[in-house]
Simulated scan of single mutants.
Amino acid sequence: MKRVVVDMQNALFADAIATALRDFDSDFEVFPSESPDKTTDMCADTQANVLIMEVTAYTPWKIEERMKIRDEVKSYCPDCKIVLVVDENTEKKLADKVRRAKKDGLIDNFLYGSVSATYLSAVVDTL
C-alpha cells in the first residue's frame, strides 16, 4: 500500500487527484490534507510514502512555505517523496523556481497542473 498525502489549495483539485490515484491503482491510499498546518502531522501519522503539494504565489502555498513543510516531513518520514504541482501557465516564474528545486535535489519530482490525471498517477507510482 502506497500512502499519499495531498495538500492542495483547491479542495476539488485535491479530490480529483485522490480519485485519479485510486482509479489508477487500488494500492494507493490517499489522505487529503485539510490545511497546510496539518500536512506535517498527517504525513507523520500515516507514515506517508509520497507528499503532493500545490505551489502558488499566495500564502500558505508559497514555495518557501512548502520547503519548510518538506523539511518537517523529512524529519518524521525521511523516505517520503516530495512532489510539487505548479501552474506553469499563470505562474511562469514560480514554475522555474519549482523546476530549480528539482534540479537542486530539494524535491523528488514536480508536475505542471496541466498534466493528465493518468500521467500524474504514473509519476507518483514510479516514486
Rank of each mutant, 00 (worst) to 15 (best):
residue 8 M to T: 03
residue 85 V to R: 12
residue 95 A to P: 01
residue 112 Y to Q: 14
residue 56 T to V: 10
residue 92 K to V: 11
residue 90 T to P: 03
residue 21 L to S: 07
residue 93 K to T: 05
residue 39 T to M: 08
residue 110 F to T: 04
residue 106 L to V: 09
residue 89 N to I: 14
residue 21 L to D: 09
residue 28 F to G: 01
residue 81 K to L: 04
residue 95 A to Q: 04
residue 123 V to K: 15
residue 61 W to R: 08
residue 9 Q to Y: 11
residue 53 M to N: 10
residue 57 A to T: 03
residue 85 V to L: 15
residue 82 I to F: 11
residue 26 S to N: 08
residue 19 T to M: 09
residue 9 Q to S: 09
residue 31 F to S: 04
residue 107 I to S: 12
residue 30 V to K: 04
residue 36 P to Y: 01
residue 71 D to V: 01
residue 115 V to N: 13
residue 88 E to P: 10
residue 74 K to D: 02
residue 64 E to S: 03
residue 68 K to C: 05
residue 93 K to V: 05
residue 79 D to N: 05
residue 9 Q to C: 10
residue 119 Y to C: 09
residue 28 F to W: 02
residue 97 K to Q: 13
residue 106 L to M: 13
residue 41 D to V: 08
residue 61 W to H: 14
residue 118 T to Q: 14
residue 28 F to M: 00
residue 86 V to C: 15
residue 64 E to A: 02
residue 45 D to G: 11
residue 42 M to W: 00
residue 49 N to E: 07
residue 81 K to R: 06
residue 13 F to Y: 11
residue 9 Q to F: 09
residue 69 I to Y: 02
residue 82 I to G: 06
residue 127 L to N: 02
residue 71 D to N: 12
residue 70 R to W: 02
residue 56 T to Q: 09
residue 82 I to L: 15
residue 27 D to V: 01
residue 123 V to D: 15
residue 46 T to V: 07
residue 96 D to G: 06
residue 3 R to E: 01
residue 75 S to P: 11
residue 90 T to K: 13
residue 14 A to N: 11
residue 29 E to F: 00
residue 22 R to Y: 00
residue 72 E to Q: 14
residue 113 G to Q: 15
residue 62 K to H: 04
residue 55 V to R: 12
residue 37 D to K: 04
residue 67 M to R: 09
residue 60 P to W: 00
residue 9 Q to R: 03
residue 95 A to D: 07
residue 72 E to N: 11
residue 79 D to Y: 00
residue 109 N to L: 09
residue 99 R to W: 13
residue 77 C to W: 01
residue 48 A to L: 03
residue 114 S to I: 14
residue 118 T to L: 10
residue 68 K to D: 10
residue 45 D to Y: 01
residue 61 W to Y: 15
residue 84 L to A: 11
residue 84 L to C: 12
residue 38 K to E: 11
residue 101 A to K: 05
residue 80 C to M: 02
residue 97 K to V: 01
